[in-house]
Nucleic acid binder design. Structure first.
Lengths: 199, 199
DNA sequence: AGCCAGTCTGAAACTTGTTCTAGATTAGCG
DNA sequence: CGCTAATCTAGAACAAGTTTCAGACTGGCT
């Protein structure tokens, strides 16, 4: 836990850390306003007071940039969930609540959500590691909510299906193809796979 | 059933039908070779012997073009499945088999699959109707495989989760984040939601 | 202090999706 | 046939992601 999730990243100086943060801030702000297309690399660079080339040094593409933003948000979300964990009786209910809370935070800033999620689904092999990190974070959030010590293989399968459902339902909602109620139903249905589980 | 799925499309002349077909052919061919990024509008136009403006008249964006290609494939797939339906004993097994056959056809041309699926997930509200058609086709394929007359609401929920899983697992596999075996497991797990069902 | 390597900046260039325009072709119709 | 509206073509032009480059700046080292 102490070994932060930064495998091969050389330590950044303070100014560099600040730059990185400014970039992520600017990205989120632009995305909040106009979604994916409003996040234009030149504008991000300008808003973050950084040269375009520098932006590309920190984040090698628009997709990387937005996926990193998502990663950021998920980390905050996970922390919030740790601070006030879902309080259902059985694991399925807790996972549902956790994901619905996540969904609510997406609904609060739909344009930002759109930008981040579209970037994630668009991420190809080039952004593999970053997308992977997001996936691992999501898994961790679900496992946190389940609360069972070490999950069985069956449970891991269920978690993967839940994750797929969460992800795809979110996309459908963002493109107006699915209602909020349906998203909830889908998540509940998928969480049914966890079963009442062992006591 | 007789009212083809062409709501507002004025009837095309023979030459126009041929152009449309040439465009879709060229798209598939380019995609097969180099995936999403190899499908460049200028190249499609040239390969289809059509002016760029015409290409855009037929398909208002690259996303539309690729989603239409996917729609095309799914129709063929559905026909193939009708011709030789999956032969499992229970609905869950049949749906699994249908989806695994679909998956196999994707594996045969991974670059093409990549292009089509990336376009689909990238489709925003602008390409809503087209993406919807793809979704309805997928649902139809699953319902075909289930074989139950009219599904219960619960079953429809299950179908939606299966669809989400299929879709998202496919993306994960395409970006190298999930193995073929995992895709199968995920689909089987999701299909478990159908249950042995009523006799 | 002086130097080196790495980093940052500003600006231009390149790529590819998308739009626009002017003129040629075509289809349908009297 | 000859007319008209729609369609098609060729090509320029525009927009935004990405790359490149020369020069300025920074941080660490002796």
């Amino acid at each position: 836990m102490t070994a932060e999730a930064r495998p091969a990243t050389p330590p950044l100086t303070e100014r560099q850390e600040a730059r990185r943060r400014r970039i992520l801030e600017a990205t989120a702000e632009l995305a909040r306003r106009g979604g994916f297309e409003a996040v234009q690399m030149r504008e991000v660079a300008e808003a973050a007071e950084v040269a375009l080339g520098t932006l590309y040094r920190y984040f090698p593409s628009k997709v990387h940039l937005l996926v990193a933003t998502l990663q950021d948000r998920l980390q905050q979300l996970r922390a919030a969930l740790r601070a006030r964990p879902p309080a259902g009786d059985d694991p399925a209910a807790r996972v549902t609540e956790a994901l619905m809370r996540a969904f609510r935070s997406m609904r609060r800033e739909p344009q930002l959500a759109d930008a981040m999620v579209r970037a994630l689904t668009f991420a190809d092999r080039g952004a593999g590691p970053e997308a992977d990190a997001v996936s691992r974070l999501t898994t961790a959030i679900i496992l946190d909510a389940m609360g069972t010590g070490h999950p069985t293989p069956d449970q891991l399968c269920a978690v993967r299906v839940i994750e797929h459902t969460w992800h795809s339902a979110l996309i459908c909602w963002l493109s107006g193809r699915e209602s909020i109620a349906q998203v909830r139903t889908d998540i509940e249905t998928a969480c049914g796979l966890i079963g009442p589980a062992a006591p």
